[in-house]
Simulated assay, not measured.
Amino acid sequence: MIDAPFVAHGNIATAGGCMASVYLAAWVMGRLGGEDNMREALHYVAPVGEKAAYVDHALSVVRPFWP
C-alpha cells in the first residue's frame, strides 16, 4: 500500500481522496499542455480566495511525476 494522494508510473496515474480529480487533471494538463496552461486552468476552477495556494499545492503533488 502506498500512502500518497497521487502516484504515477509512466503513462499510468492514480489518485485518491477529495482532490483526486484535481491531481489527475493537473498531471494530464501539465504533461500535455505544459505548466503555464495547467496553472491557468486550475486557477480558473480554484476557490475564490485560495487560488494561488490551490494551484501551488496541486503542482507540488504532481510535478515530481512529470517526465
Rank of each mutant, 00 (worst) to 15 (best):
H43V: 00
L59S: 04
E40A: 15
G17W: 11
H9T: 13
Y54V: 02
M1G: 15
S21G: 15
A41W: 12
V45E: 13
M29L: 15
A26R: 06
G17S: 04
A26C: 03
A46T: 02
V22A: 06
G34T: 11
D3E: 12
M38Y: 07
S60N: 01
K51W: 00
P47F: 02
S60E: 11
E35M: 08
A8H: 09
A46M: 06
S21Q: 14
W27N: 01
N11C: 06
A26F: 01
L42Y: 01
D3W: 10
V61W: 06
G34Y: 01
Y44W: 08
A8N: 11
I2G: 05
R39S: 02
V45K: 06
Y44F: 12
V45S: 13
L24G: 03
A52D: 15
I2L: 13
Y23L: 15
Y23K: 03
Y44D: 12
V61N: 04
T14S: 12
R31V: 01
M29P: 00
E40D: 12
E50Y: 09
F65W: 14
E50I: 00
G33V: 00
A41E: 10
C18D: 12
V28R: 12
E50G: 06
S21E: 14
G30V: 05
G16P: 00
G17Q: 08
L59Q: 08
A41V: 11
D36M: 04
T14G: 14
A20H: 06
F65D: 09
M29V: 04
A15P: 02
P47L: 01
P64A: 00
V45H: 06
M1L: 14
A58P: 07
Y44K: 15
V7E: 14
N11I: 10
I12L: 15
A25F: 10
M19Q: 11
R39A: 07
A41Q: 14
R31S: 06
A52G: 04
A20F: 06
V22N: 02
E40F: 07
G10N: 08
H9M: 13
A25V: 07
M1P: 08
D36V: 06
Y23N: 08
G17M: 03
F65S: 07
M29D: 07
C18G: 07
E50C: 07
F6G: 10
N11V: 09
V61K: 05
G49V: 09
G33R: 09
R39H: 09
P64I: 08
G16F: 01
V62F: 07
Y23R: 07
L59T: 13
L32K: 12
G33M: 10
L42W: 02
Y23D: 10
